[in-house]
Design a protein around this nucleic acid. Sequence first.
DNA 1: GATTAGCACTTTGGATAAAGGAGTGCCAAA
DNA 2: TTTGGCACTCCTTTATCCAAAGTGCTAATC
Lengths: 349, 349
Amino acid sequence: MTLNRSDTILKHIVEYFIKHAQPVGSQTLIDEYHLPYSSATIRNEMFALEKQGLIEKTHSSSGRVPSSQGYRYYCDHLRDKSVDNELKYSLQNILDEKIHSIEEVLKSSCEILSQMTSLVSVVMGPDEKEEQLANVQLVQISPNTITAVFVTNRGYVENKTFIIEKGINPSEIVSCVTLLNDRLKGTPIYQLVDKIKALKPVLNDYIVSHDLVYQALLETFLRFASDRLSLYGRDELFNNPEFKNDTDKLHRMFRLLNDNSLLKEMEEDVKSDSEEPIVKIGEVDGNPDVSTITAKVKLGSEGETSITLLGPTRMDYDKALSALEYLTEELNKYFAKLDDKGGKNGGDA
Amino acid sequence: MTLNRSDTILKHIVEYFIKHAQPVGSQTLIDEYHLPYSSATIRNEMFALEKQGLIEKTHSSSGRVPSSQGYRYYCDHLRDKSVDNELKYSLQNILDEKIHSIEEVLKSSCEILSQMTSLVSVVMGPDEKEEQLANVQLVQISPNTITAVFVTNRGYVENKTFIIEKGINPSEIVSCVTLLNDRLKGTPIYQLVDKIKALKPVLNDYIVSHDLVYQALLETFLRFASDRLSLYGRDELFNNPEFKNDTDKLHRMFRLLNDNSLLKEMEEDVKSDSEEPIVKIGEVDGNPDVSTITAKVKLGSEGETSITLLGPTRMDYDKALSALEYLTEELNKYFAKLDDKGGKNGGDA
DNA sequence: GATTAGCACTTTGGATAAAGGAGTGCCAAA
DNA sequence: TTTGGCACTCCTTTATCCAAAGTGCTAATC
């Protein structure tokens, strides 16, 4: 595919700005990319591009900078879609290993992704609306402490150690565990609290300090996956020149990583039926300095989650999009293949 | 206790600089603290303090700034040791709750600590040399995925979900779990890998895909508590004026939080027999901009850990030290009391 | 008609200089 | 011993200038 002149120039402007973080003028563009036009011609094209809202000036006699629309157009029509071989190689290395969990595959993938793109990778953890209880264990680890562990049908593990003032008879624990597993297995997490409330009278028959155990179970389940987002490569943000001498902007980005508006956006994105990655340019939580790219990952029979790349608006969209597209595609294949090998799709635990 | 004039002036210099992050001169000191001396007198005292190495000039005609030694002297002799009532109140609120785990108490404590002091709180996680295996579980969560969960004698939980290509008979899992618990319970974590290697032939008798299970167990235990440090209030660092317009310094601090030199320092500190908090002023990992205060916490019969407050060299040492001293003392009492209630000190699981 | 050379104009950023402010050290007087 | 006074130093802010990079426009050229 060969681009017309206007598109070529826009492409160069975007790529120059992504690379140098400096507004770019007509002459610079010619020098950098050896364009066979005069600077006046470039200026005329730039004037047109600006009227279309694709590029902007920072002041009346400055060079041009891509606008959000410009980035968008670049992502949709101009980028090269070139996948880094190093990414392919690193990813294959991970997926070729014999044994690993979903969580670990996602973690390693994100680490590579962050490293290759210099962006922050975010992966969504389990949603309590999707998870079901697979197994509960109570482990007595000292005369007055018990650790409750529960595993969901997708392999997420949550635990809480609690202290009880009176000792508990080990046999009580065994029967308690049996009871809980019998009654609660397969229950969606968000219904657990209610179910446990219903179980309270039954517990009384099984265990002496039923009240404490009951309280502890309640708290354990209430706290399910309170930190739903895992972040990788957070410190990459420091390397962006737009934040040198502007700690406030940087601070705002870091805050975005901590509060849950990001989670909300990711949840929305994973619900959409778009198969393509969703690119948000300077519109994340109202912060014009931040862009995100979110893609779904299908975990085979285990549902789906999403991975987001987050960085400054001036991020390398081509690299990031290509990497994320490649990665999610490979992961989808990988998880699908695992399902095939494992026989029929997982029935309820 | 009433201070002599020299100490009074040093105290004011330190406190002014902590508050305003600006070098302080003789006249400013008089204005701010209504001192009954002339500026010339103050200057003479300052001259003496500088000769003793307690304060410094940033240039020949600048005001004074505390040196590391100055801060040290301040911590040892001049600070007020005033504990914030809000801290007392918040902490009591936590400790009065009926049910919570060690981890949670430490977590909540650190969150309060960070909030009150505007510093980063760091708490050390379990040490694999101290932890013993209390319980192993294998939970089959779908035809081809199994989650291995293990709990240590102090209630730390580690897990790994792994994918096996062939289905496993549920009864095999049960006998495998029994076997593992029989043979491994009470084993120190760092010996687990070897013990499992020794168990390999026995596993063969119990489970068809023994090789995969064996591999998976190995990996699970190899990965124990790889992130040994929990951080709270990381973003507080952004609020320090010394980092405005100096992203590099900030970056260096963030890097310090990620790499493990901090962990090493904390491990050393917890080994020392000092009962007092250990204050490191501008000497953490060779970074002159960082100070830390580390205090041990005795977890009753569960050994001990340490909490570190980390911030810029210009931190409020009085507030931080007082808060940390108060907090650790209360926690020590709290955990000791729990032990009493629980009967004899915890025998091996 | 599209392209380009040429030119006037705008804005930024860096350098330089001047002025003001906050501070010091020292000396002599109280 | 303390303090008023003073000369001196260095940083910071403000103003000014100038070069660099850029634009838009117009007229000439291909």
